[in-house]
Design a protein around this nucleic acid. Structure first.
Lengths: 151, 151
DNA sequence: CTCCATTCATTGGTGCGACCAACATTAACA
DNA sequence: TGTTAATGTTGGTCGCACCAATGAATGGAG
């Protein structure tokens, strides 16, 4: 389960990497559980969101836009296509590519997942005031941006 | 790879769960890489640290003190024992238990890993000022504690 | 003191996320 | 044209978290 109570080695209690991992693990549990209840997982949401944002895309583009490995994109798309949330068709102008399109069902499913996600944010940040939430988001954004640039 | 650049669906860019995951993924990559270079992984460090802190312990106690599932404790201890970092001996006063002890080598290895970890913290928080680091640690600690109590 | 529930170590799974290597096909370019 | 690069796909690996079941051993309730 992993809590931060007695079960955390003392030297780790204040190590940022540990704290981040703890909170991340918790958020991951929340996401996994709620998404599973909706018949989805993280990769699905990311892909659907990218499709909704950028419109029909090749699989390679999807990988780039979501940070998901090409090979994992294949697997996740198979799952999404099996559920009719997404459609794959060959790109006539480049026969290497598939054009992946969001279906109406996929769109609907994405909205669901968005609601689920919003609920999770609230639960995750429950103990923080609105100002503190802003602070946290700001700090994390800076960390993320910094490390994103670095590679 | 996963950066926060163009490759992040817009609706996720400001979702705390996403940010936390991004930063966590980055920290995880750092930890995994550096620990692997030292021949270890996260579970190893946690177990060694718990042993150093609480002294010789049963495997169940180790699981409790580290938040690692009992079954995973077994596997990780096998690896540590194979490297002579840890020793398993039957508890004479309770024959169900093993008493796990940190060896001198284990102690040395733990110190190494501690240095590695310290370096990672610096790198992870590089873009933040000392005050901001305190802020972040404080906020994360509150989140971790909150969610730890809740279960 | 006996029976039952609990604890313990262990085995063997599952799932998710993140990676990597290799391959055939197709495009782009020098 | 010949070579380099991109694309989709297959088939792995690893780390972390978690679950179910089992046999051995213990402790507590009656």
């Amino acid at each position: 389960m992993m809590t931060a109570d007695a079960r955390t080695p003392e030297r780790l209690r204040h190590a940022p990497s540990w704290l981040i991992n703890l909170v991340s693990a918790h958020s991951h549990r929340l996401v996994a559980a709620r998404f599973a209840a909706a018949g989805a997982r993280g990769y699905h949401f990311r892909l659907l969101a990218a499709l909704d944002e950028h419109g029909p895309s090749s699989q390679a583009a999807l990988g780039r836009n979501t940070g998901i490995d090409r090979s994992d994109v294949v697997a996740a798309l198979n799952e999404l296509a099996a559920k009719g949330l997404v459609e794959r068709s060959p790109d006539p102008s480049d026969r290497r590519r598939n054009i992946v399109t969001l279906t109406a069902d996929g769109s609907r499913h994405l909205s669901e997942l968005e609601k689920v996600l919003a609920g999770i944010q609230d639960e995750l940040l429950a103990p923080l005031s609105p100002e503190e939430r802003e602070q946290l988001i700001g700090l994390l954004t800076r960390l993320a941006d910094h490390h994103a640039k670095a590679r």
